[in-house]
Simulated scan of single mutants.
Amino acid sequence: MASGTEPDATGVSPDDAFATLGNEIRLEIIQQLGDADGPRSFSDLHDAVDVRDSGQFNYHLDKLVGHFLRKTEEGYTLRQAGERVVEAVLSGAVTDAPVMEPTPVDEDCHYCGAPVLVRYNQERVDVFCTECTGAYGDTHASSGADVPEEYGWLGGMPLPPAGLNGRTADEVLQAAFGLGQTEFVTASSGICPRCSARTDRSIEACEDHETDDGVCSTCGRRRSVVFGSACTNCNFATGGGVLQGLFAETEFLRFMTDHGLNPVNPDSVTEYLSAISDYDAVVHSRSPLEVEVRLTIDGDTYSRTIDDAFLDG
């Protein structure tokens, strides 16, 4: 059995972390512990991992103890860092690359009412309108979605490959929408949903917004005012209509749920998007920027001012 006391669980550099994990035996040890209901002894782990030499096994096991594994009198268990590795592997994020070609779903475009298609590629669900030019017109601004010429891009949402398992195209859309909405809730409160660091929140208003054909020729968007949230630590960034800056506010969420709209798990994605798309954003000041948001549902209006104080809160 491995000897010595367990090292302190201290941070490691990215290079050291990847070097530690760059070995099949170590990854198999982590995966075996990920499947366990509790601590596993040295002998139990050795029997489960495909390596005969106990000295070699002990060497690799010791490399993991401290940052990725915890050694106790009962045996070995995963630390949080080890659990994250298992989650990444099981989600398929680091091993799988499934593709789903554009597939019809039982939803309509909330802009024009035409049928909608969803496609899965590179851990993202992209949604396309079959008739209109989508959210950004022919420019497909900021989409990175490789939009086929015959479709309009309505948006993209992250979904690890495991999200496709056992799901129809409609269920894939619902899963991606729910996951994306939870990210909006977290990011709108100033917390990165990927790494937990602070995000910089921002609002931007088009100075000459005209949307006679649906998309402004100046900013390339349908919305005159947009909200953004970008992580100060990792490469996560998200954004959309300014209303999304309110997703973490209790009063706004209460207004939504009081009118039968669940922001995370709506009964219908189309009905939900149609309801929250019909709002006004009134710019009261540009320097500093101050925007009043007004959303009316079933005759009731929710109003909220977004300004620098809101963004810094």
Rank of each mutant, 00 (worst) to 15 (best):
F42C: 06
S43D: 15
D44G: 11
D44I: 06
D47Y: 07
D50N: 02
D50P: 01
R52M: 10
R52S: 15
D53W: 00
D53A: 13
G55N: 11
G55A: 12
F57N: 11
Y59W: 09
Y59P: 02
L61G: 02
K63M: 06
L64E: 05
G66I: 14
H67G: 15
F68K: 10
F68C: 05
R70T: 13
R70P: 05
R70H: 11
T72E: 10
E73L: 03
T77Q: 14
L78M: 11
L78K: 08
R79S: 11
R79A: 08
Q80P: 12
E83A: 10
E87I: 15
V89S: 08
S91E: 15
S91K: 06
A93V: 10
D96P: 12
A97Q: 05
P98R: 04
P98T: 07
P102C: 02
P104K: 00
E107P: 12
E107H: 01
D108N: 03
D108W: 04
D108Y: 03
Y111E: 12
Y111S: 06
Y111V: 15
C112E: 01
P115H: 02
V118C: 07
R119V: 05
N121T: 12
N121D: 13
V125S: 08
D126R: 12
V127K: 13
F128W: 02
